[in-house]
Amino acid sequence: MNQESKTKRMVGTALRFRSHGVAHPTQSFVRSCMPYFLVLLPFLFFSCEREERTLVVQPPSAQEASLPQVSDLAPGPQHNKAPSVSNPDENNSWMMAEGKRFYEAYNCVGCHAHGGGGMGPPLMDEKWIYGHEPQQVYATIVEGRPNGMPSFRGKISNDQLWEIVAYVRSLSGLTNQWAANARDDHIKGAPPPNSVPEGTPHNSSEPQP
């Protein structure tokens, strides 16, 4: 049976059912309207498609476990901290030197200076607004942050990103001191990362307007 004849049969059934208790004029009215109904019906059926309810919905690809934790608060007795991601670049001088180069080339330096900040917050102090863990710094660069940190999603390659993360963390002594950059070829600026005392990073408040 094709779709059209099936539809006709169903409409016919419906009309017969309704006609039992209905007065004659109405019935004729309904009959006169039939052609219109028939034209409209495919649309009606289309719009009446039922929501499909499944017990398990495939979630978006983001996995809870892989997201960095930015808050010090976690309700309940069990504190399931996000697993720390170690960044091998932080033990590698070359990678961190490359990180510094990209930090300058991508104009991070324009806002954060050589760690002291300016338009953006300092990166060499112990205050971290959106977390100091490698994956948190990574997330901040990729996602951006609402009070002025641009999102660099799709603008910087993944390798370069992790190198920048390593360099940024080296500014406050959070990376391997033996691998951190020792000197700067430019104007005498901030103390070189390998002579920055290891910081005790802590979460700081959002910038206040």
């Binding site: 760690g115 002291g116 900040g117 300016g118 300092p122 104007i187 600026g189």
Partner: peptide
């Protein structure tokens, strides 16, 4: 006003 770290002399341009 920006809580900058003046150990870096190049901070704030």
């Amino acid at each position: 006003s920006g809580d900058l770290d003046a150990r870096d002399p190049t901070a704030a341009l």
